[in-house]
Design a protein around this nucleic acid. Structure first.
Lengths: 169, 169
DNA sequence: CGGATTACGTCAACATGGCTGACATAAAGG
DNA sequence: CCTTTATGTCAGCCATGTTGACGTAATCCG
């Protein structure tokens, strides 16, 4: 046993296994974004708007710099979509109290409503996958996904109680 | 037990759990594509080229329609990137034998080399995640990811031996 | 055989969402 | 007071998706 043939076969299995992982990620991400994209299109918005709405909803009173750090896009790119969201009344900007240069972002009621609607389909998709896969599989899923992240992103998922988790002041 | 408080708490945990899943997908996908994107940029190519190179490499002698079915983009969009790849000698087109209307796509040696280089970083990232998470976790990962797919995409991962798996003629 | 369908390609125009570079203003901080 | 920081804005470029229209060659089918 453990001859050359077995080694080559193992290598093949490994390669195949890794490519399966790559493709799962590709297809899952595509389907994950497909439904919200349709809803957004009807409103004349795009995926970039969704990301902003999502993270502002997730971190109320987030500053522009913090949002930029999460999204990792330029302020010019953000400004375009954020500006539209503010003008259309999905997001409000409030001057920071401690630092008056900051614009603290928050969803309006209209914004919350849209956020709900958009992520509803995504939550359902994940819930369905979690349910059919089972609790143990979900643990494995999380472990593997965490392993794919860089340290910086991984830190965002620190256990609750760790105040520094989000990187807010 | 099982009073209202516990129910609300469970609901909160569930919501939090689902959002964690959403964010894992967002960050993982972004990091997954970041490294190839850099290499591609140096060659004046983009992510769309990578996808074509990947799937042509994965399915040698694939037809244009089959590739379109996998990528789910319009033929005009594909034509732009595929044309560049053919002109730059990464991909060859051969007239189909049974059906001479078909263009069977295949990677050249240069194409294979680039494909290797591009997916190398991705394979390493996945391999690392798989290794640290362990075999059991990988099973769970796959279960959950499969659960997120639509039936059509899920069918692509049918166990080997199923000839119809890829949907090739 | 001949008409319909299929596989593929191409031209043109448009939208989204990234990017760089330059410049401006107000507030904070040493 | 000078520097740095947080934010915004204008202008232009690029990649990659879209729709719509049209064309050619090969295949299929009645």
């Amino acid at each position: 046993m453990a001859d050359i043939k077995a080694g080559a076969s193992q290598l093949f299995l490994r390669e195949e296994e890794l490519r399966t992982g790559m493709e799962l990620l590709f297809y899952a991400y595509r389907e994950f974004t497909a439904e919200p994209d349709e809803i957004l299109a009807q409103l004349g918005l795009g995926r970039a708007h969704h990301r902003v709405i999502y993270f502002v909803g997730r971190h109320p009173r987030i500053t522009v710099s913090e949002l930029l750090a999460i999204l990792k896009i330029t302020k010019q790119s953000l400004s375009r979509v954020l500006g539209e969201l503010v003008r259309q009344g999905f997001v409000t900007q409030a001057t920071g109290l401690r630092d008056r240069r900051q614009r603290l972002l928050e969803l309006t009621e209209k914004g919350v409503e849209l956020e709900r609607k958009l992520s509803e389909t995504q939550r359902q998709r994940i819930a369905r996958a979690y349910r059919t896969a089972g609790a143990e599989a979900v643990q494995g899923f999380r472990k593997v996904m965490m392993g794919m992240l860089d340290d910086e992103d991984r830190a965002k998922f620190a256990p609750p109680g760790d105040v520094r988790a989000v990187g807010r002041r």
